[in-house]
């Protein structure tokens, strides 16, 4: 194994917006690639985490599979980072939290406008939904938080370069946003 810093990333109940914003570091990606090696991530298609230094989690936890993935990351990553509003407070998916799950499913798959062949998906391959969408710190211990919807490319860059160069990460005022 190389002595590069290993980074894993995933999107749970997120929209991949945080990942897109990460890619917005543009040509700085080349510099980053000299320093880090990506492990499990949509960027690599590696399916399971091995030992990593940094795990970046986008999205909250909405179903049983999210719980497994999050625990796999926590087990394998020395530093686990909640990336974006959804991982921090559940975000927009958590706006279903005050509606009973059955009502949500009925609205989407039975009574919704334009629904054909109404039925609630029930394939054994589908992960079961949780009663609510949970922020990740309610399931595992989280080491750092990058707020934003999404956090800007500069947030990713500042945070990762701080960490890689051995500084305690710190974001200046202009980089902290909840929106």
């Amino acid at each position: 194994m190389s002595d590069k810093i290993r980074v894993a990333t995933t999107s749970l109940a997120g929209c991949f917006g945080c990942h897109m914003s990460f890619l917005d570091i543009d040509e700085r990606l080349l510099k980053l690639a000299e320093l880090v090696e990506f492990d499990r991530s949509p960027i690599t298609d590696i399916e399971h985490c091995s030992d990593c230094d940094i795990g970046l989690i986008e999205g909250g936890v909405c179903n049983a599979e999210n719980v497994h993935v999050l625990r796999e990351f926590r087990k394998n990553c020395k530093i686990l980072v909640a990336v974006g509003a959804c991982s921090i407070n559940g975000g927009l998916p958590a706006m279903r939290n005050h509606i009973p799950l059955e009502e949500c499913l009925n609205e989407a798959y039975i009574k919704g406008i334009g629904v054909e062949n109404p039925q609630i998906p029930n394939d054994p391959e589908l992960p079961l939904l949780l009663d609510k969408v949970y922020p990740i710190h309610e399931i595992v211990k989280v080491d750092y938080y990058l707020p934003g919807c999404p956090p800007s490319a500069d947030v990713f860059w500042t945070f990762l370069t701080d960490l890689i160069e051995g500084r305690e990460p710190s974001l200046p005022y202009e980089l902290v946003h909840y929106d």
Binding site: I88, N97, P135, H137, Y173, V176
Partner: peptide, 16 residues
């Protein structure tokens, strides 16, 4: 919250 450099909500959410 920005002024106090709050990055997370720390506590479990009520989702009231």
């Amino acid at each position: 919250a920005y002024y106090l450099a709050m990055k997370d909500n720390h506590f479990p959410h009520f989702f009231a």
